[in-house]
Design a protein around this nucleic acid. Structure first.
Length: 285
DNA sequence: AGACGAACCCGGACGC
DNA sequence: TGCGTCCGGGTTCGTC
């Protein structure tokens, strides 16, 4: 759910509020001991020096050489308002000149897939996905030849490979389906079976979808909220995700939902022809 | 090493 | 109405 556009939206909203602010206290609330909230208390006394993002991870460098890492998981929401339920962790911040209670950043996460931990800056040993994360799709570091070369290294279905965050950072289930539809590629196509031309089209489609969603502050299906509590507006722009049974907006064929790599996968059976090689997916829904 | 499936977790949808 | 079951999602872990 929160993928690159949603996390970047949150990042932009947090940045002006948090940068330069000192953390008075960092604490877990209804959160278990364990790696997902490891070292959180160490943030106390440090100043937030930046709010950056890599893929779906928020990275906040702190003044004593640590780094606060936040991953929203499926249902994580960051807010200055204390939630009534499912509060996992929070940062108490030094007060602004304005009167009133100390401001705070609250992390609500009903499904507990999120993370909120502090590590020595750059020490991502407890986060293998972050450690091996591919390049940012909206940055200059990734070009079409590099992307094609990455795809050529895997025989995994291209959608599954995208979800692994290796060829490119920040693409999740929703935008993978949307980008593959735009590029007219069947999700089960082995990554290395894509021509360089098709790989280039896929990268362009990924960039278009992520940019358009970012411009709309992301997609809210149910849980995702901006820091100010508002929803993202991109849901109405989704072309295949969640639209199984509806006509394809491009050709009118009925959009299908299949399971691929254990994930719900939406596609147009006419626009996105399966590869000529053996079909790797199994059951239409 | 890489690939794959299961596990994690729980609100909501669904079936009876 | 209420109970039980299933689903899904990103990431990690265990197993092949």
């Amino acid at each position: 759910m929160p993928e690159l556009p949603e996390v970047e939206t949150v990042r932009r909203e947090l940045e002006p509020w948090l940068v330069g602010r000192r953390i008075l206290r960092a604490a877990r609330a209804d959160a278990p001991e364990g790696p997902k909230y490891a070292g959180l208390e160490r943030a106390a006394g440090q100043r937030v020096e930046g709010v950056t993002r890599r893929g779906k991870f928020l990275l906040l460098p702190l003044s004593a050489g640590d780094e606060l890492i936040i991953h929203l998981g499926m249902t994580g929401v960051l807010s200055p308002q204390r939630p009534e339920r499912h509060l996992r962790a929070y940062l108490e911040l030094e007060p602004q000149p304005a009167p009133g209670p100390n401001p705070a950043l609250y992390f609500r996460d009903p499904r507990r897939f999120g993370r909120f931990l502090v590590v020595p800056a750059g020490d991502y040993r407890s986060l293998p996905t972050l450690q091996a994360l591919g390049p940012e799709p909206l940055g200059a570091a990734l070009d079409a030849p590099g992307f094609a070369a990455a795809l050529a290294r895997s025989s995994t279905p291209v959608k599954t490979y995208l979800l692994g965050q290796r060829p490119v950072a920040g693409v999740g289930n929703i935008y993978a389906d949307e980008a593959l539809w735009r590029a007219r590629i069947h999700p089960a196509t082995p990554a290395r079976a894509l021509s360089r031309r098709k790989a280039g089209a896929l990268l362009e489609a990924i960039r278009e979808v992520l940019s358009a969603s970012l411009a709309a502050q992301g997609t809210t299906l149910s849980d995702y909220r901006r820091v100010n509590g508002e929803v993202g507006a991109y849901r109405s722009e989704l072309r295949v995700y969640g639209r199984e049974g509806e006509p394809c907006p491009r050709c009118g064929a009925i959009i299908a939902k299949i399971t691929l790599g254990g994930r719900g996968t939406h596609l147009c059976p006419r626009c996105q022809r399966p590869p000529h090689t053996k079909l790797l997916y199994t059951k239409p829904l």
